[in-house]
Design a protein around this nucleic acid. Structure first.
Lengths: 162, 162
DNA sequence: ATGACCGTTGACGTTTGCGTAAGGGTTAAC
DNA sequence: GTTAACCCTTACGCAAACGTCAACGGTCAT
């Protein structure tokens, strides 16, 4: 058993999760206050399980896409009901569907925004290249036009929020 | 000229815009306070032009995708500089690119979220259909399985925000 | 036993984005 | 002439989501 404490049994301290997910202890405690997390305790200290970690991931993703904590909590609660309570689950189903519709709306908005920004970029580039080509992003020797699809870096993420 | 006051010359009162975009006068004045809008005046009364209306659209879309007002203001400011000031525009270009990357990240998050919710829905449906089929969304006689892609209604939109 | 860290619980402070009066001015209808 | 419908400004209020102390406990190395 001492060797068997590999993956699923692993636990995390508050700090470990904070480092991993780039947030503060204060935030985690706050989420707990608000009923989004409920880590175990060793004495006073919080002990986060893998499931807690997963919940935290969902929380943060939810935040990035603009959900409020109470909305996230609601979703997590519905999520956790794999048990009976059929009527409850029917409600969950409706809620989920609503959220999906909302998200799809939001995706449209984002696509719009991206499209507009791209246009703006294009116009700016044209202007600059005809007036002050020296200010353009280096445009070295090799790559012409297409410019590699940057991003993909697994450690970016992060966003604002009202 | 009296007949020529068709489109581009049109102006709007604060209330008209509010009705059209489902927001309150208070909000518009607030945006103005924060430097996002700057309608003309007739005496004390605000008079919104088509350009103002367009800005408002951008503001609201920005909000829906989770931007803060100050971020939106920044973008609008950069937007408005079609004039000279090359160096400034180079900065704008960089900012825009950053925003695009951020938006693409956000789109990924949303896609994830949608996927997860769909999965959850599927599981819930399975469960319900095997235990309490009566609780499922009517599943009438005709449509089997595919269910029309609801939404599309042009007057939904709207979202939360901290 | 003395810091140096990590953890804990309050509790007050801050920023954002408006809501909600409170008080006042104009014009249009009745 | 007063009621209704808009408009304005000023200002206090409020919820969300933490930040930032303050004050205290555990433990490990020096």
């Amino acid at each position: 058993m001492p060797l068997e404490l590999r993956r699923p049994e692993r636990t995390f301290t508050i700090r470990q999760l904070c480092l991993e997910f780039k947030c503060t202890p204060r935030a985690l405690r706050f989420y707990e206050d608000k009923g989004l997390l409920a880590p175990a305790r060793q004495g006073l200290n919080r002990v986060y399980s893998y499931k807690d970690r997963a919940r935290l991931q969902l929380i943060l993703r939810g935040k990035r896409v603009g959900l409020s904590l109470s909305e996230i909590r609601e979703i997590l609660q519905l999520y956790g009901k794999d048990d009976g309570a059929a009527a409850q689950n029917a409600k969950a189903l409706r809620k989920f569907r609503e959220r999906i519709v909302a998200f799809e709306q939001q995706r449209e908005d984002i696509d719009h925004a991206i499209a507009e920004l791209r246009e703006a970029c294009a116009r700016l580039e044209d202007m600059l290249s005809s007036v002050r080509p020296d200010l353009l992003p280096v445009e070295g020797e090799a790559s012409k036009g297409v410019r590699a699809r940057a991003a993909g870096g697994r450690d970016l993420a992060h966003a604002r929020h009202a």
